[in-house]
């Protein structure tokens, strides 16, 4: 079976992973890419249900292309040490939809050491939000340091929580060197196009839609 390129999105609880997916998929779909979503959630399938509802309304993604997985108290286990549940879900999805260009996998909200198994994800995004404090890029942790793209979300809240974006920018460069990071405000759709551009360039190597072929 062809390997459909996969993006993994990790990050602390509530940083905006699901909302980014809700914003990102319509951008990809408008460019002609067929996208599927697997949303890992700690104790419910609420996020998956919300993503499914949003995406079917915004860009008519078929309902079975949004799959929810409840992983229990070990969200990192399900995307790193034992990704078997996710791999099984991906297999099923690709069998049903061989036309897929990309699959986005959301990890359940977790701590800053979360990473994705390279067997599961080809491109790893880590998402934090400014409301967690401007200290986060500085604190590092395997997720923030090793991800292919660091997304710092909810910049609209910076002034309300006393977070200094310049500090976050400086520390992100310090802890990640050359590797990219982006500021986003998913609520007002700021920066989402830029995230899509990074994925298309660095994961799909600018391949046009349908390039992998069924």
């Amino acid at each position: 079976m062809r390997r459909v390129p996969r993006v993994g999105i990790g990050g602390p609880v509530g940083s905006g992973k699901s909302m980014l997916i809700e914003r990102l998929v319509p951008v990809l779909v408008r460019k002609g890419y067929a996208a599927g979503v697997i949303s890992n959630d700690v104790i419910s399938k609420e996020d998956a249900d919300r993503i499914r509802a949003t995406l079917s309304a915004d860009c008519t993604v078929p309902g079975d292309l949004v799959v929810g997985l409840a992983t229990g108290g070990c969200p990192h286990t399900a995307v790193r040490e034992d990704p078997s549940m996710n791999l099984a879900a991906i297999e099923q999805m690709v069998r049903d939809h061989p036309e897929l260009d990309i699959i986005i996998i959301e990890s359940g909200g977790d701590n800053i050491t979360t990473t994705f198994s390279p067997v599961l994800a080809d491109y790893f995004m880590y998402m934090i939000d400014v409301a967690g404090g401007d200290k986060y890029p500085r604190k590092g942790g395997l997720g923030i340091q090793s991800c292919d793209l660091l997304v710092i979300n909810k910049i609209d809240l910076a002034e309300h929580v006393g977070a200094d974006l310049d500090v976050m920018r400086r520390d992100a460069v310090r802890s990640r060197g050359e590797k990219p990071f982006l500021f986003t405000d998913c609520r007002s759709n700021t920066g989402v196009d830029e995230v899509a551009r990074h994925i298309i360039r660095d994961l799909l190597f600018d391949a046009p839609p349908g390039a992998g072929g069924p």
Binding site: G72, C74, E81, D82, S84, M85
Partner: peptide, 10 residues
């Protein structure tokens, strides 16, 4: 329990 068969979720 390290064996990757998804048992941690049951």
């Amino acid at each position: 329990s390290l064996f990757p068969a998804g048992m941690f979720a049951m």
